[in-house]
Design a protein around this nucleic acid. Structure first.
Lengths: 237, 237
DNA sequence: ATTTTTCATATGTATGACATAACTTATAGT
DNA sequence: ACTATAAGTTATGTCATACATATGAAAAAT
């Protein structure tokens, strides 16, 4: 009912901010602006393009978060060379917004965690292996505490996985892993808690030792199942 | 010369815009804001958070371009539901990647692509396998064309990987895969182009057949290396 | 009852001012 | 003469305010 005629739709003109964005990206594509180049100061750009500085600012900010530009206070704004971690952001938010089923989330975690294990095996150095062992020891100790066993263990547990992700030496992968883990935080806490309180803390610890050993021995076999076991109970699959 | 003491580095506080972004995304993460929800009007948000409206605007704009929010004039701003076409692909196109980022990105691609293969092997159904075979056939045909061999092949190639990602039946993983592939678009085009033009198109096709076979036979072995071969030349590792 | 007008609302844009960081140059103190 | 401090410059970061404009809803006119 009352559908607007489709032949009119093309008239909706793009916003000022959008046209500034297009202007800048076109210049980059045409290589008038090359990576490392400084773009004109915001006030000047605003004047040149005949728009308000606030509009230019919004455009610049957006491109900054998309990893295209980089602003340095008092120096200027430059075209990025190389990647920026922020390039991952669209994906990160995509994940957050679309977190759907528990199963998908867990699959995703297994996928990223296994990936981080591979990277860690490939890129870690000895000192990090010791760090990892130390965290493992903390986890062991936590299980013998009288109070706050669960919380203390869980914190160390998180540091353990954080460390593995760090050992992969890939900032973008690290970021993805972190987000996915943050989304599974609550569930993992429950699992860990349940296992400890039901006296199966040995098993819990073993699964992490297994991960540690895999890295130490550069063992790429069965990473997926090893990873799964570290946050799932065996009989829960 | 005049190195700043590292123990001071943590003092650089995040920008106002960034904290607004964090505030909003945290709310989404905590499900205080769910997809479809309307966020408070900009002036109100500014007042509540104690910042200027322009700062709120920049944050909102950024999240809009990241596909998190959607603004409707005179109505309000809403949390996006579902996927939005990210405009990131055209952005990155003109950017020259340095060696570091190249390797990180390729690792990331291998990680996600291998993960998608595992999901596809687990969740695909027969009809999809046929679809995949059909795309493979298109790729084969593309290589025999007189004109536009590279472009035609590359398009089919992309559909091929898209299909695999789809077969995983995991929207979040799908999204990740898509963004990573968009980031590696330019590089992959170069590789594919180089291989075709230097008469190594058979090899190029073989690597994709290998992926197809792996899914068909539910073969989880050596997925990583198979995936790597499908976008890297063997002798390039 | 239906159309038109008016109005409220919230985003879109513009303008101007000041704050702040980093770099440059000038000045003062030894 | 040389360093150290101070002042100036530049460009981004933030704030405040005003006005424009699109949309939907309510009120008025037909």
């Amino acid at each position: 009912m009352d559908q607007k005629p489709s032949y009119l739709k093309s008239l909706k003109k793009e916003s000022v901010v959008q046209s500034v964005i297009n202007c800048l990206t076109d210049a980059i594509r045409a290589e008038d602006l090359k990576p490392g180049d400084k773009i004109p100061p915001e006030p000047e750009l605003a004047e040149t393009l005949g728009v308000a500085r606030s509009s230019v600012r919004e455009a610049v900010k957006i491109l900054t978060y998309l990893g295209v530009l980089e602003s340095k206070r008092s120096e200027g704004t430059f075209v990025c060379s190389g990647y920026k971690e922020s390039m991952i952001d669209p994906m990160v938010y995509g994940i957050i917004l679309n977190k759907d089923s528990f199963e998908n989330l867990m699959e995703l975690r297994e996928m990223t965690e296994a990936g981080m294990m591979r990277l860690a095996i490939e890129h870690h150095d000895e000192s990090e292996l010791e760090d990892l062992e130390a965290i493992l020891e903390e986890m062991r100790n936590a299980l013998n505490l009288k109070e706050n066993r669960v919380d203390t263990f869980f914190q160390a547990d998180n540091r353990f996985h954080d460390k593995i992700a760090e050992m992969g030496k890939n900032p973008m992968a690290f970021k993805i892993n972190k987000v996915v883990r943050s989304l599974t935080y609550a569930v993992r806490y429950q699992t860990v808690s349940a296992m400890i309180l039901s006296g199966r803390s040995d098993k819990l610890l073993d699964t992490h030792v297994e991960l540690y050993e895999a890295i130490k021995n550069s063992d790429l076999e069965d990473l997926d199942s090893k990873v799964r076991k570290s946050y799932f109970e065996d009989d829960l699959g």
